[in-house]
Amino acid sequence: MSIGAKTLVYGYGNPGRQDDGLGAQCIKKLEDWLVLHPHVELLTDTNYQLNIEDAAAISEVQRVVFVDASIEDIDGFSFTSIQASDAKVEFSMHAVSPSFVVDLCQKIYGHTPEAFLLHIKGYEWDFKEGLTPSASQNLDAAFEFLLHFLNPNVEK
């Protein structure tokens, strides 16, 4: 079953750095959920960080949700719309932000998908696998929100 717009959910971060793996862990939960809901058509992807080639990837979908860990002072998670015009100068970085990817997509391909960022609060970033308990709780809440956002009518 299509959930409407052709959608990519893209988690990023390093799962070898504790809560920096929130993006990848969210995608794993989503892929596990998709196994139980094989009728749902949804694209997923993960990487250590976003980069310029992701402009090509998102140019092929109508909607993209980026999922990332956050050190910001947010209440569990936040969900925001991304505009190409939000892109900031990010010269000299090996990685780029979601708004940068969206902006680059617009400049190169002349169109962008509807884009969102799901930011999930993390707490610890050491050289370990696995999320902290607090980050796991935030992930659970963010994941419920994500499923509802993707399609309020899809059963959980």
């Binding site: 902006d103 680059l104 400049k107 190169i108």
Partner: peptide
């Protein structure tokens, strides 16, 4: 600096 990156390149040298 606002265009001194690949987005600037996309504008001037797509």
């Amino acid at each position: 600096p606002a265009i001194r990156n690949i987005i600037g390149i996309a504008l001037t040298h797509p």
